[in-house]
Amino acid sequence: MATLDTGPRAKLKWGLLDAVVVVFALIPVLWVVSLSLKTTATLTDGNFIPREWTLDNYRLIFQTDQFVRALINSIGIALISTLIAVVLGTMAAYAISRLDFPGKALLVGVSLLIAMFPQVSLVSPLFNIERQTGLFDTWPGLILPYITFALPLAIYTLSAFFKQIPWDLEKAAKMDGATQAEAFRKVIAPLAAPGVFTTAILVFIFCWNDFLFAISLTSTEQSRTVPVALSFFTGASQFEDPTGAISAAAVVITIPIILFVLFFQKRIVAGLTSGAVKG
């Protein structure tokens, strides 16, 4: 909290603190990368930096249907869920931040409740309902709960973004002869695009990350996502020791996250902080 101190010593102090944070954040990730690059022989040597490097683990997983199929499922399910959640969330957030209608407070309350909802409480009933309706072990069977839990996130983040757009702009559009829909399409939507994009990233990360629903509501490769497939690599017969393969798969599904974080750090921070804390 050196409010006034900006000298070289302060810089050194902050530099050290920064280094601690970076190390703290990166070590587990680098460790998995390291494991994924180790040869079978050196896998259990306990060294943080591999002594022998190989890409065999990556070659191996991309040859197995188990992983490739799971990757397709993960990508497909996360993208579709994100798309739907963001579209529905945008509509609702726009209404919440801009329009006056009875039931608005209720909707805000419901989404808040869902944000706090223990997902595991839904696992048993959804398991049974989905088995009866044939949604079990299908893409829609996962997409539905993902949308549900992503919606509160989307609604909060987007309302915060919408509220930053001056209300006068919309009034002005109406005065200029626009209908409500035209005002939205021509004035608000272009301005909201960055917020929508940020929200999409956050929602995608959420869907990409899920494990509980994915493991409870799937049973075969048909709709299993990568996090679940990872846990099934353990003891699977086709690998003697799954550690290398798991690590390689783990690295693969971490890549999109790293890319998001690298390119959109500012937006993600803005999205998380604006949506979550406004009280």
């Binding site: 001056p166 006068d168 009034k171 002005a172 200029d176 272009p190 301005l191």
Partner: peptide, 27 residues
Amino acid sequence: PKDRDIAMVFQSYALYPNMTVRENMAF
């Protein structure tokens, strides 16, 4: 409002930030 044929100037000006001056006036 759009059917009343009146124009309004706002305190904040309410210029559309994504449009140029020309586009704002042409809107």
